[in-house]
Amino acid sequence: MTHHPMPKEYYRLLYELQAVDFVLVELTLYLDTHPDDTQALHEFHQYQRRKQGLTQQFEQAFGPLHEFGNSPVGARWTWAESPWPWQV
């Protein structure tokens, strides 16, 4: 259980990820009603690549973001450790 405050880097990386993930949410809803917009699909691919890089960076530093085997886990089980999103 970690009880010391999260470092600045945690908030910075988290914000970068939130920004890229948000673009992907927006493009997802847009593509749901505009499936033939190839330009939007191209942008989706680009942001997906950025997301992959940022996710990897974040998870290496601060542990898995996704449950049930959807994120790499290290030699120690840290998924269930604090802080949770509403606590930071």
Partner: peptide
């Protein structure tokens, strides 16, 4: 119906404003 090719915000600005 949203036309394709509308201008977009940068990712940071989009997040801050709640839309792309």
């Amino acid at each position: 119906f949203q036309p394709p090719g509308l201008r977009t915000f940068s990712p940071h600005e989009a997040l801050r404003r709640g839309t792309l």
